[in-house]
Amino acid sequence: MALIATLDTGFGAWNPVIWIVTMMVALVIAWLIRSRGESVQPPGTEAGKPYLSGNDIPYPEETHVAASNLYWGFTDAMKRYYGRAVPLHTGILTDYVLWYIGVLALAIIMAGVL
């Protein structure tokens, strides 16, 4: 049980310890570059403020994006799939039993034929 062991995945290898060390080094380099920048904005200007095409910036309390608004494009593109998949989840116990019995019948037919 070596402390540093490489996961053998058959065709490749995965070593999290080396990965973590590499990421730490990368983060340190990133921090070094960042620390060379200006730490404060020049006072008296608007350089530090967000800019939204010249419009007024709404208060953050008003800008919460609700969960149902996310991935609208994805669900809209997949409308044909979802139009079929969602109605299948009827919530009726009879349908649940029927699906189970259906798969069972299919499996028995497969077992009998093959």
Binding site: V86, H89, T90, G91, I92, L93
Partner: peptide, 10 residues
């Protein structure tokens, strides 16, 4: 009725 018992669905 089983058809009324479907508040969980989707």
């Amino acid at each position: 009725d089983v058809r009324d018992m479907r508040r969980l669905k989707g």
